[in-house]
Design a protein around this nucleic acid. Sequence first.
DNA 1: TAGGCCATCTGGTCCT
DNA 2: AGGACCAGATGGCCTA
Length: 139
Amino acid sequence: MFDLVSDVDFMEMMPNTSVLGPKETHSTDCNGLYQDLTSIHALDISTARPNDFYALSSSTASPMSASTGKPKRKRVISSVQRQAANIRERKRMFSLNEAFDRLRRKVPTFAYEKRLSRIETLRLAIVYIAFMTDILENN
DNA sequence: TAGGCCATCTGGTCCT
DNA sequence: AGGACCAGATGGCCTA
């Protein structure tokens, strides 16, 4: 059945399935893909220097908010704040990848198979949950 | 070499 | 005001 993972359109099959919980973290492995973990955790936003201000371009923003219809006010952000935001984003993506790793270890795969990609992990998890649910309901 | 996957940066929006 | 979340863009790496 797990051959299905790459063949089936799972979004059609279970359009509303939510696979991952909101905030899960754990350690990682992943063949060195996220190798520089210590440096990520060591990143310190507080080392950013103030005074380094620049206004982000006002030319690229659309003038109105899509959701509220009110005119947008451009958020001025310093290069220090931008750097800090980049660091937070890297940490956020890191914890997301940790969650993927954790999920990867929960879904059944053959030992010789190469590491599942994120999309493959999600699809296989959906199939696996459906499979287990089916077993439970029919016994 | 094309396509898939991923990390990172970035700006917009939502939320506290 | 600022952090969290999200999606688009970009570039690097790997494999068929």
